[in-house]
């Protein structure tokens, strides 16, 4: 039997190394548009992807900017993601999506157009039409959009097999949540009769709350810590880092996985850059 936590770490390690190396590419100015790095938040998508893998289903997935980890954790092609960063037609969004609007048709990951949070009503509509398992990722700031709230309400009314994942890093660019609102997403969703939980990005805690996923609408408000700036090449400081904690937990095995993924990402970049 697979070690769930270890499998999650393997996915998260790929995501973290991809973002760290991309961070360097942004610093080197190889990439000439805003890049939204998901480092620090990668355990959310990695845990859910591992759970989905266990369930042997292929849900529709709706993402927003800061979605590289979701794309990679659910199995999106790393080569196509690199090509997208390089603006190539062979990119996962045909070179049109940049960092913010990536997609993966093979993994049912739908791209985002830039209107913050509109993936919530779009995901709800898709789920209503298909009645198939659907996951919608949204940031704590985009979730404030009025149409997100009404969409969550309609999903509840229609009892859809949908999972809303609020990646709550407490920041809208740099504006803290407490400045923007005095309410919490899980409270609002609970008020709409959606099973809602406010949890950390600990993989085991997330997994615990996925036991009845897709039986009815569920909202997970997952508290997490962003490593890099909202966009571009800068760090938010020495905050708590889930990746370091898990790396330390797995000891030498974790270091080996980290090295393996770092090489995998470096080789992928080399391979794609040589294609030019």
């Amino acid at each position: 039997m697979k070690d769930f936590r270890l499998e999650v770490f393997k996915k998260a390690s790929l995501c973290r190394n991809f973002e760290n190396i991309l961070y360097e590419k942004v610093q080197e100015k190889l990439i000439k548009f805003p890049v939204y790095l998901s480092a620090g938040q990668e355990f959310i998508a990695s845990t859910i992807a591992e759970k989905i893998s266990e369930l042997k289903i292929s849900p529709d997935i709706f993402i927003q900017h800061r979605g590289h980890s979701t794309y990679l954790a659910f199995g999106g092609s790393i080569d196509q993601l690199i090509d997208e960063m390089l603006g190539r037609k062979t990119g996962c969004a045909l070179g049109m999506g940049g960092s913010a609007s990536i997609q993966c048709k093979e993994k049912n990951i739908f791209g985002h157009d830039g209107l913050m949070g509109n993936q919530v009503p779009i995901g709800v509509g898709a789920c209503f039409a298909s009645k198939c398992p659907t996951i919608v990722f949204v940031g704590d700031s985009a979730a404030e959009e009025d149409y997100c709230l009404s969409a969550i309400g309609w999903a509840s009314t229609k009892k859809l097999p949908i999972l809303f994942v609020v990646e709550d890093n407490n920041l809208s660019i740099l504006t803290e949540k407490k400045v923007r609102r005095n309410w919490e997403m899980h409270d609002v969703a609970q008020g709409m009769h959606v099973k809602s939980f406010n949890i950390s990005d600990d993989p085991l805690e997330i997994n615990e709350h996925l036991q009845n996923v897709f039986d009815y609408p569920i909202l997970l408000n997952i508290n997490t810590v962003r490593k890099y700036w909202h966009a571009g090449a800068g760090t938010d400081g020495d905050n708590f880092d889930r990746y370091e904690k898990e790396l330390s937990y797995f000891g030498d095995a974790g270091i080996e996985i980290d090295k393996f993924n770092k090489n995998l990402v470096l080789e992928a970049w080399q391979r794609q850059l040589e294609k030019q």
Partner: peptide, 10 residues
């Protein structure tokens, strides 16, 4: 606004 989104999703 949300309704427009539902239709797009469908």
């Amino acid at each position: 606004v949300a309704n427009g989104g539902f239709v797009v999703g469908a």
